[in-house]
């Protein structure tokens, strides 16, 4: 499904700000994999997503998505097969446009000069109703009026409107209050399960990293340290993860935000 071979990226090479963000990352995802990714700030998690999505060209290596080499494909072309959510709920939708217009953009389809049909509007309504947030009755309101949680739920809907080959979730619940975060997370699970989507999720919550999906990656200094698959993950606790991290890196994982997830 997704194969990364020897991906490296150094920002600002040759200057005092030189920062090696990714070092020879190799990764292979099967179709339907749901991978959670953990690691301290600056470990290279978001950079990995940026490389996959095509926000920059990696210094070395190749990226293959669904059998096709996309290493040199521009971001907007890759976006047709990659859905992406960010931590900032404001980032994924246009505040000055209505819910309906945002969904129409996400749905794509039809020619450039086509209008949104009645059938499509009805389909949008049904999808919005699934969110259980009352948004289906506010379709003609600008998105700027929605709360952060509502906007992130809408963005999730937009990103998966046309089922993407790969869904990238970059701490997409981190900026939401705990109740809303839980709701958006369970929506995410539903949508990923129903669509059988291949998904990668960055999280700072170590317990949900172990609970969700079928595979967990741990990153540090631009490398994938640990790659725990289905059976290896079974029965692991957050303490086990922290211990494994220490053994591999030789230092304790002392990121407060990550520890917040410890139960």
């Amino acid at each position: 499904m997704l194969t990364l071979k020897n991906i490296s990226k150094t920002f600002n090479p040759g200057t005092v700000n030189e920062k090696t963000a990714l070092t020879g990352v190799d990764l292979h995802l099967e179709k339907g994999d749901f991978v959670t990714i953990i690691g301290a700030n600056g470990a290279g998690k978001s950079t990995l997503f940026n490389a996959i999505a095509g926000s920059f060209l990696p210094d070395t290596g190749t990226i293959t998505l669904d059998g096709k080499d996309v290493t040199f494909q521009p971001e907007f072309m890759r976006a047709k097969s990659i859905g992406r959510l960010f931590q900032d709920p404001m980032r994924g939708s246009a505040p000055g446009m209505t819910i309906e217009e945002n969904l129409a953009l996400a749905a794509g389809g039809g020619g450039w000069l086509s209008h949104v049909s009645k059938a499509e509007k009805a389909a949008f309504r049904d999808k919005l109703a699934l969110l259980n947030m009352g948004l289906e009755d506010r379709m003609r309101q600008p998105v700027g009026l929605l709360s952060g949680g509502q906007r992130q739920a809408l963005t999730l809907l937009m990103a998966t409107m046309v089922p993407p080959k790969l869904l990238l979730l970059d701490e997409h619940t981190a900026a939401l209050d705990p109740g809303t975060a839980e709701k958006v997370l369970s929506l995410t699970q539903d949508i990923v399960r129903e669509g059988g989507l291949t998904c990668m999720m960055i999280t700072h919550n170590m317990s949900s990293a172990l609970e969700l999906g079928n595979r967990t990656l741990m990153m540090d200094s631009g490398r994938i340290l640990l790659d725990l698959k289905q059976d290896q993950r079974k029965g692991l606790t957050v303490d086990d993860l922290l211990r494994m991290f220490k053994e591999n890196v030789g230092k304790a994982l002392d990121n407060d935000r990550m520890l917040l997830g410890v139960r």
Partner: peptide, 25 residues
């Protein structure tokens, strides 16, 4: 209100969104 028109409006309204979407700004 066409798809192209919506894409143009989104480009002006939220460039961040457009950059990570399938719209070519």
């Amino acid at each position: 209100r066409t798809r192209l028109g919506l894409a143009i409006r989104a480009t002006g309204n939220n460039p961040d969104m457009v950059r990570s979407s399938s719209i070519n700004p």
